[in-house]
Each structure stands twice: as structure tokens, then as C-alpha cells.
């Protein structure tokens, strides 16, 4: 693996790491498997790209992306809690609807950001080469999100969210409206995913309606890999593990793509297959370990 490939994987791992933190929030904290993310990642990209081309400051466009992501997640939460639709199905409905919405927002299947300023440009202007600038910026942002998330989870509201995912009967008896907590939590999660989407669009110079395919699977893979490798003994550790998992996952993908066996090699389109296999392995690894540990 070349140095550039490694920096590339690091950059991807960090920026997608923000998405993984969102997936961690729903999947692990709220116990709410949320497929909205496949739609809210391109939603964030679309909103950010369109705002920038309309003349908004690229940093502000990220806030707009987060707001849009929040609404998308909150909609999934509403469908689940107020209409009683199963969480998985509720999120698939929002995700499906977002495909159309994203095309509406962009006025087509994609928007190019070539030649316009992004959040990365101020850093590049200092003379820093691109392969340092983006990992650096994304590392700072990922660290900020990690700190904010840990801080939030230790607030009164955050504790109520943890309790909602753990024991809904208990926290209801303590006077908490779990519907509100779920709507807020799924909203916050998708705000993070949309933030990642906006950053990715700005980094690669385009937003595309199909860029969200496989987001949830990549997110789950990263969460599980992170837990397995880095551990989840304490809450802060588990949060950091999500981003660590994301980096490991992207490096592993880069390695797999560079692999050549005879005339066979993987192409980027094999990515989803590899990821799905990785998730299956990661999910069954603990069970296999137990079985082989016994004999």
C-alpha cells in the first residue's frame, strides 16, 4: 500500500467516521436499526452542494445539511412512534422518499462543485498539499463530534436517551416521553450523517444521488469492527471506537482493492459485497470464537 493510498484511506475513514458516529447513536444507543442514512448522506451532500452553488458559505452549507438530515431522521422517528410503523420499515420509507427528494433538491441526479470554494480551500491556500489538508480537517471535525457526543450522552437528556435504548419501561416510569427521545435521537444521528455527506461532496467535488448506497452497511461494519478491535468497556471508549472502526474499515477496503490474485482483482463495485461479507463475519465472530474456544 502506497503512502498516498494510506492517506486516502485515513481521510475516508475520518470523514465517514462522522457518519459512523450517527449510526452508533441509533444502532447502539437507541437500539433503533436506522436505514434512513442511505438517503440522508446524499441529502446532506445535495443540500450542501446546492447551497454552495447558490452562493452560501461552504461552512454554513454544512449547517443547512445537518438541519435537513435532522428533519429526515425526525421523520423516521415520527413514522415509528406516532404511526406505529416498525422502525426498520419506517426508515426504509424515509430512505426511499429521500431518493426523489434529493433529485428535486439538486434538480438532477448530481451537482458538480468543481471550481467553487469548499471548506477545504482555506487550508489548501496555506500551501498544505491536499492529501494532508483533508485528513487534517476531517480529523479535527471528527474529534469535535466525538467530544460533543460524549458530552451530550452524559447530560440529563443524553442519559434519558441511553435509558430509552436500554429499558423503555423503566424510563417511561421515570416520566420520560420516549417518543420524543426517539425522534430527537434519530434526528441527531441523521444530522451527523448529513454532515458527513456534505463534507464528502465538498471533498470529492460533487454530490450524487447514488452516493448513499451501502452507507448503513459500511456504518455497521465500522461500528462492529471498532468494538471488536478497540473495545467498548466504557461509553467514551465505545464512541471513539466507532471512528477507529471506520478508519480500519477504509484501510481494509483499500487493501482489498489493491489485492491481485493472478489475473483477478477487486473493482470498486465489489465494495458492497466485501462490506456485507465483512459484517457477516464480524457479527458471527463472537459466536465462532465461543464455539472454537470450547473444543
Amino acid at each position: 500500500m502506497t503512502f498516498f493510498a494510506l492517506m486516502g484511506a485515513l481521510e475516508q475513514g475520518l470523514v465517514y467516521g462522522i457518519m459512523v458516529l450517527g449510526v452508533y447513536l441509533t444502532f447502539r444507543i437507541l437500539d433503533f436499526p436506522d436505514l434512513t442514512v442511505d438517503g440522508s448522506l446524499p441529502l446532506g451532500a445535495a443540500v450542501s452542494a446546492v447551497c454552495i452553488t447558490q452562493g452560501m458559505h461552504p461552512a454554513l452549507s454544512l449547517l443547512a445539511a445537518m438541519a435537513a438530515g435532522f428533519l429526515a431522521g425526525a421523520l423516521t422517528g415520527l413514522l415509528n412512534t406516532k404511526l406505529g410503523i416498525l422502525h426498520l420499515l419506517a426508515s426504509i420509507l424515509t430512505m426511499t422518499a429521500l431518493y426523489s427528494v434529493n433529485i428535486r433538491i439538486m434538480g438532477g441526479p448530481n451537482v458538480s462543485l468543481l471550481g467553487v470554494d469548499t471548506v477545504l480551500d482555506p487550508l489548501m491556500r496555506t500551501g498544505l498539499p491536499g492529501y494532508y489538508a483533508s485528513p487534517l480537517l476531517f480529523a479535527v471535525l471528527a474529534a469535535a463530534v466525538i467530544l460533543a457526543l460524549i458530552w451530550f450522552l452524559y447530560t440529563e437528556m443524553g442519559q434519558a436517551m441511553l435509558a430509552t435504548g436500554d429499558n423503555r419501561q423503566m424510563i417511561t416510569s421515570q416520566g420520560v416521553d420516549t417518543h420524543k427521545v426517539i425522534i430527537l435521537g434519530v434526528g441527531l444521528s441523521n444530522a451527523l450523517v448529513a454532515l458527513a455527506g456534505g463534507l464528502i461532496a465538498q471533498n470529492q467535488g460533487a454530490a450524487d444521488v447514488n452516493m448513499g448506497v451501502g452507507t448503513i452497511v459500511a456504518g455497521l461494519a465500522s461500528v462492529i469492527v471498532g468494538e471488536t478491535v478497540f473495545g467498548n468497556r466504557s461509553l467514551p471508549r465505545a464512541v471513539v471506537a466507532a471512528v477507529v472502526g471506520s478508519i480500519i474499515y477504509r484501510v481494509a477496503i483499500a487493501l482489498a482493492l489493491g489485492l491481485k490474485i493472478g489475473s483477478f482483482s477487486f473493482t470498486p463495485s465489489d465494495l458492497n459485497l466485501i462490506t456485507a461479507l465483512l459484517v457477516v463475519v464480524a457479527l458471527t465472530a463472537p459466536r465462532l470464537k465461543k464455539r472454537f474456544g470450547k473444543c
Binding site: 451530550f152 452524559y154 447530560t155 440529563e156 437528556m157 443524553g158 442519559q159 434519558a160 416510569s173 421515570q174 416520566g175 420520560v176
Partner: peptide, 10 residues
Amino acid sequence: RGKWRGLTRG
């Protein structure tokens, strides 16, 4: 129980 839960320490 029964009180508003905000952003102060849990």
C-alpha cells in the same frame, strides 16, 4: 422523575 431533563450533567 417528572422534571425537565436538559443539558446539565446527568
